[in-house]
């Protein structure tokens, strides 16, 4: 771990301004991912801006009938919120499928969105990784890639995004609210929040320097059966091989997003038109451009079968 300076920000705009002034700065909230990465010198911020005191820990109704979730709301609290459990069941279930009780107690809503990939080559600084060290190459391509992306990947990176929460947020059409250093705010639909790796896999979101996430907003509830199904080798405390976030209405229409298959939560609105036609049709459209490795080709069949189980559960 490199030496760093540290400050406690007093207002969101002040935190954003501080980040703008110091290009090597990082915000820190729960620290469940950043601290590990700093110890391994995968992240080497020169300055940490602690945002824990910014009072962004409330869940409030919006005028539109949705919920505004403060950036600092802990995963445990968000999953347990009665409004979330009632109206956004897919989100609560996704949160509880992730990490462990201890980690969920610390991890925040914004931090969860911004967690880095768990690609083992990203974690081993002896190995080449374009995400960790742009231009160094991708050791995962041609290496151990069972966990990796099957769709939307590039010649530069085949990493996946590890979050469960973000997959549910994608299915719910959440929006990310940020504050700029000048105090201005902007809202980013989650569909536009994550980037595909392309040839710049180290740039993972559309946040701009200095942007501080202040909240994630959910639109008004859409009802339907809300299911989050996470498939993994062990029963708990493991990242998804494939996950499905689904919202299914009585007439069979709805939304689905996949986790564990891409550099971001994977949702193709055109595929959802196929929902009344069954899982095979939906999966075919969702994964039409898939280019799996030999080791992770099983994810295509797994995604289709999991989708089938989820749609059957929604019907039953």
């Amino acid at each position: 771990m490199r030496s760093f300076t540290y400050e406690r920000a007093r207002t969101p705009a002040e935190a954003a301004a501080s980040a703008m002034r110091k290009p090597d700065a990082k915000f820190i909230a729960g620290g469940t991912n950043l601290l590990d990465l700093m110890k391994l010198e995968i992240e080497t911020p020169a300055h940490l801006i602690d945002v824990n005191g910014l009072a962004l820990d409330k869940i409030e109704p919006t005028q539109e009938g949705g919920l505004r979730i403060g950036a600092l709301v802990r995963n445990t609290d968000l999953a347990a919120d009665t409004r979330v459990r009632r109206d956004y069941g897919v989100l609560s279930r996704a949160l509880l499928a992730g990490a462990s009780g201890q980690l969920r107690n610390m991890a925040t809503t914004a931090g969860n969105l911004l967690q880095r990939t768990r690609c083992p080559y990203f974690y081993d600084t002896n190995q080449s990784c374009n995400k960790r060290k742009p231009g160094s190459g991708c050791a995962a391509i041609g290496g151990f890639s069972r966990q990796h992306a099957v769709v939307g990947a590039s010649e530069a990176c085949i990493a996946t995004h590890p979050s469960d929460m973000a997959v549910a947020m994608r299915a719910l059409d959440a929006t990310v609210e940020t504050v700029r250093p000048d105090g201005a705010t902007r809202t980013i639909p989650i569909a536009e929040f994550y980037r595909l790796p392309g040839d710049t896999p180290h740039i993972e979101t559309t946040l701009m320097p200095g942007d501080l996430i202040t909240a994630v907003t959910l639109p008004k509830p859409v009802g339907g059966k809300q299911i989050y199904r996470k498939v993994r080798d062990r029963a708990s405390y493991a990242f998804a091989l494939v996950s499905v976030a689904a919202i299914v209405q009585r007439d069979g229409t709805g939304r689905v997003a996949l986790g564990g298959v891409a550099h971001k939560p994977w949702r193709v609105e055109a595929a959802e038109a196929q929902m009344p036609n069954g899982a095979k049709a939906v999966a075919a459209r969702l994964l039409a451009d898939a280019r799996p490795t030999r080791e992770n080709a099983f994810k295509l069949a797994l995604a289709e079968r999991t989708l089938g189980a989820v749609l059957a559960e929604a019907k039953g």
Partner: peptide, 21 residues
């Protein structure tokens, strides 16, 4: 990793052992 000659999943996130569940 048969190219570089090492065990890739060298932490307890990558090397899974049973949990209570």
């Amino acid at each position: 990793d048969e190219r570089a000659g090492f065990f890739v999943n060298h932490d307890l996130a990558g090397y899974e052992v049973p949990v209570h569940a």
